[in-house]
């Protein structure tokens, strides 16, 4: 684009007979540019922008419980009524709680384990392998393991927590969301650990050495040198973590199905229920657009905020 603009600027400075040739050049370059981005545009268009537009459009309709029946156009009223409904606000609040339970905990634990494993000790590789192993577990496997551990009849955790018998932890309105969060943190910790370990490797030893010479304590070195240098990674982990938590589905489907009493009905699960339990695609579309808007704003806000705070080491 910039090349094209320059080209036309040059052209106006030349005498008239070159002008046409110059415009031709601009057009040709622009055409070439569009040609190059065409494949990407086609893929995005078909798989992202078209479904997005379609979802916005679908939100204007009351869709029937069965696909062989007609839809009714209701305009924006479905957006208004859904987004102000008690269930949507409840679901949004449960989602925010879920993010609060999972993201900071995951980052702190990942950083802690990475710091512990960042030692030159015999056999430390074994611990690194163990700490990162959950990255190899699927959500389904993690969920089934915890489902068994939390079972009210045979579960070890239920026994330790004195919750044996009865309906169990996953059916307890107070404990269900924290329990699902624990599974999520556990499953994500391998990924965070690997991220943090890699980042720790890149913290220059000379900086830490210099700080030590100046008499900084171990904790102060960690807080004032290591953490600022890790901030791009923490930034990355928090964005990925928040988006991941907003989209967490498998563990909720396998452990609680949104229950008890909607206490684990996070937005993504609400969308799933609307679409696939109630066949209510209009409602599901409205909810999806809401989730998209929330994630979009959140990501912009994170960039705006962290761009000012995050310390990037200059490449040299």
């Amino acid at each position: 684009m910039r090349a094209g603009a320059n080209g036309s600027l040059d052209g106006t400075q030349r005498i008239g007979r070159f002008r046409n040739a110059s415009w031709l050049k601009v057009m040709r370059e622009a055409g070439l540019a569009y040609l190059w981005i065409l494949p990407a545009l086609a893929v995005f268009g078909v798989f992202v922008f078209f479904p997005l537009a379609k979802a916005v459009w679908l939100g204007f309709f009351k869709t029937p419980p069965f696909p062989n029946l007609p839809s009714h156009f209701v305009g924006v009223s479905q957006y208004a009524s859904t987004l102000s409904s008690a269930l949507f606000l409840h679901s949004l609040w449960r989602t925010i709680l879920f993010v609060i339970f999972t993201v900071p905990t995951g980052i702190v634990l990942g950083l802690l384990l990475a710091t512990l494993a960042h030692q030159r000790l015999a056999g430390i590789r074994i611990f690194r392998t163990i700490f990162s192993s959950t990255v190899a577990t699927s959500t389904a496997v993690a969920s089934v393991i915890f489902f068994t551990l939390l079972d009210p009849q045979v579960g070890l955790f239920s026994y330790w927590l004195g919750q044996r018998g009865g309906a169990g932890i996953l059916a307890n309105p107070t404990l269900a969301l924290p329990a699902v969060s624990v599974v999520t943190v556990w499953q994500n910790i391998g990924f965070t650990f690997i991220l943090m370990s890699a980042a720790l490797q890149s913290v220059p030893d000379d900086l830490l050495e210099a700080a030590r010479m100046d008499g900084a304590s171990r904790w102060y070195r960690f807080r004032a040198v290591t953490v600022p240098l890790l901030s791009p990674t923490i930034f990355f982990a928090s964005i990925v973590g928040i988006i991941g938590s907003f989209q967490a589905f498998g563990q909720i489907d396998l452990l609680t199905q949104g229950g008890p009493n909607n206490h684990t009905l996070v937005l993504i699960y609400y969308i799933y229920q609307a679409a696939y339990t109630d066949n209510n695609y209009g409602l599901a579309a409205v909810l999806s657009i809401a989730l998209f808007a929330i994630l979009f704003v959140l990501t912009l806000a994170q960039f705006w905020f962290f761009e000012r705070r995050v310390f990037y080491v200059a490449a040299n």
Partner: peptide
């Protein structure tokens, strides 16, 4: 005691004599 809506835990409670 209440038991889960989605399992036979109520029957297990009979078997395990709870």
């Amino acid at each position: 005691q209440t038991t889960s809506a989605t399992t036979y835990d109520d029957l297990y409670a009979i078997l395990s004599q709870i």
